[in-house]
Amino acid sequence: MMSSEFFTTWFLPGIWITVQVTVCAAALGAVIAFGTGLARGSRLWIVRFVAGAYFEVFRGMSALVLMFWMFFALPLFGWQLEPLWAGVSALGLTYGAYGSEIVRGSLAAVPAAQKEAGIALDFTRWQRLRLIELPQAWPEMMPPFNNLLIELLKGTALVSVITVADMTFAGNLLRLGTNETTPVYTLLLVLYFVLAFVITRGMRMLERRAKAGIGERPEKRGGVGTKSGGVGTKPGGVGARSGARGESLPAGPRSVGGGR
C-alpha cells in the first residue's frame, strides 16, 4: 500500500492538478464553444465557414494525438509549451469544438417568435442575443454541458502521458516504484467517479437556477449518479447535429439520433 509520504507528495497534489486541468480546460473550452457556436450562426459566410471548418477538424481529431502533437511536434515549429498548458490547450480545443455544437443547437432551438419580437422592439443583434436568446438557451445547454464536462474530466487523465503529474501520473509512479497495482488503480477509478459525481451535482444546481431565472420549473429526474436525464452522450456525435434539445430530453424517440 502507498506510504503516507508518497500520498502527500504525489497523490494529493495530483488530485489538485487534475482539478486544475479540468477547470482551466473547461474555461478555455467554454470560451471557444461560445465563440465558435455564435460564429456558426453568423450572417457572413466566411465567418460561418471558418468556424465550421474548425469544428469539423477538431471533432475529427483524437485528443490524445493532438496532445502528443502539441507536446512533441509544436516545439519544432518554434513554439514550446509547458506540458500542463499543452494538455490544457489540447483538451480545451477539442472539447470546445464539441461545445460549440451545443451552443449552436440550443440557440437555434429558441423559438423564432422570440427573435422576431426582438426585431419588432428594434433591438440590435447584440441586444437580442444578450437579452432574449441567450437567457432562454442557457438552461437548455446545461444537461449536455454536464455530459461534456464529465467527458472532459475523463479526458484529463490523458495529460499524465505527457508527463503532467496529475493523479493518474501519481498512480503510474506508484506502480513503477512498488509493483502494487490493485489498490492504486481502484482508488483512482473511485476518485474519478467521485469527481464526476460532484460535477453532476453542481451542474444540476446551475440548471435549476437557470430555469428559475426564466420562470421554468426544473424537470424531475430520477436515476442514480450522473445520467442527467438524456442518453449518456459522448460528444462529437454527428447525431448531435440537431442540438442540445434533442439530447437533453429523457428517453424518447427524439433523444436517439439527435433528432431531425
Binding site: 464529465i150 479526458g155 487523465a157 498512480g171 497495482t181 488503480y185 481502484t186 483512482l188 477509478l189
Partner: peptide, 26 residues
C-alpha cells in the same frame, strides 16, 4: 448492472486500460 455501467461510463478509459492491463492479471 446500472451501478456498474454508471461507474464505467464515468471513469476515464485510460485508467480502465491500466486497470485491465496491470491489475486484472493479478
Amino acid at each position: 448492472v446500472v451501478a456498474v455501467t454508471e461507474f464505467i461510463r464515468n471513469t476515464p478509459l485510460l485508467v480502465q486500460l491500466f486497470f485491465l492491463f496491470y491489475v486484472v492479471p493479478n
